[in-house]
Design a protein around this nucleic acid. Structure first.
Lengths: 140, 140
DNA sequence: TACGATTTGCAATTAGATTGCATTTGGTTT
DNA sequence: AAACCAAATGCAATCTAATTGCAAATCGTA
């Protein structure tokens, strides 16, 4: 695992450090996006500023992307291969109103609709709110 | 004009005050959504807290809705008739990367796509980034 | 091993959102 | 029109999240 992570960092031309390995590992092992505060709780020895700058670095290198749902702290999620390809074009996310987690949706059939005259689109972001399958179960 | 605005407030069961009339008037006369800071600049005698609470009141009464684009301060826009009907379901917005303004898009053919198994959708929000027709002109 | 550049930790700052509370105001009742 | 009550307002303060400055620690390399 560690080796894979180091490989990933190397591929993205990000200098390898202990912080970065562990933050990336956490992100990879979490199925939903994470806020700085959440990462801080998961890695209590890590400094907020370091986490902040690490995430910015990762974002700049297209290793992850910011997820902006209705909740306040911005969350970050790892970019999958699908994400890499369409990074600047497609950002579909699902926000569960029960657990509050936000998941990336890649298998997604979305057509960019027509815009008013003389409007040109560059990218778009789509956030769907609802209940995820996990919370669905617990509700029964 | 003033009468129309008062009529609108009355219809929404919002108590009529000077602040509310002028804030609503500003929102109605602006083609794009406005942040608290922007409203504060436009109405310098108005208090930030009052603007804040006025917008919250308007939002609660479905007179306007919050617009969350990539920019930081949350913006608010008047709900059109189309908005009223689908208020909790559809929020398409267009954010111009040149002027930074965000416009509501109501004439919009958008189909909610299929979700992964056991995910249920309640509402969704769509923000399209690009260049608006006005900025398009100035670029030529 | 020394050097230069980058990263980190800590503290402080900024920005925006939000609230407490005393005062004022608006609408209503007498 | 005066009195009254609930809601709205203004001001200051607070809170949360984001962001930065700077000195110390660290890493890779000469």
């Amino acid at each position: 695992m560690k080796t894979e992570i180091e490989e990933l960092l190397r591929k993205k031309e990000i200098k390898i450090t202990a912080n970065r390995i562990l933050i990336l590992e956490l992100l990879l092992n979490t199925p939903h996006s994470l806020s700085i505060a959440t990462i801080e709780k998961a890695l209590p020895w890590a400094d907020r500023a370091t986490i902040f700058r690490t995430l910015k670095t990762f974002e700049k290198k297209a290793l992850l992307h910011a997820v902006k749902d209705d909740d306040k702290p911005i969350k970050y999620a790892i970019c999958s291969d699908a994400c890499e390809v369409n990074y600047h074009k497609i950002h579909p996310h699902f926000h569960c109103d029960t657990c509050g987690n936000t998941f990336c949706l890649y298998d997604y059939d979305f057509r960019l609709p027509k815009l008013p005259d003389n409007y040109t689109a560059d990218k778009y972001s789509l956030v769907i709110n609802g209940i995820c399958s996990n919370c669905q179960k617990h509700n029964i």
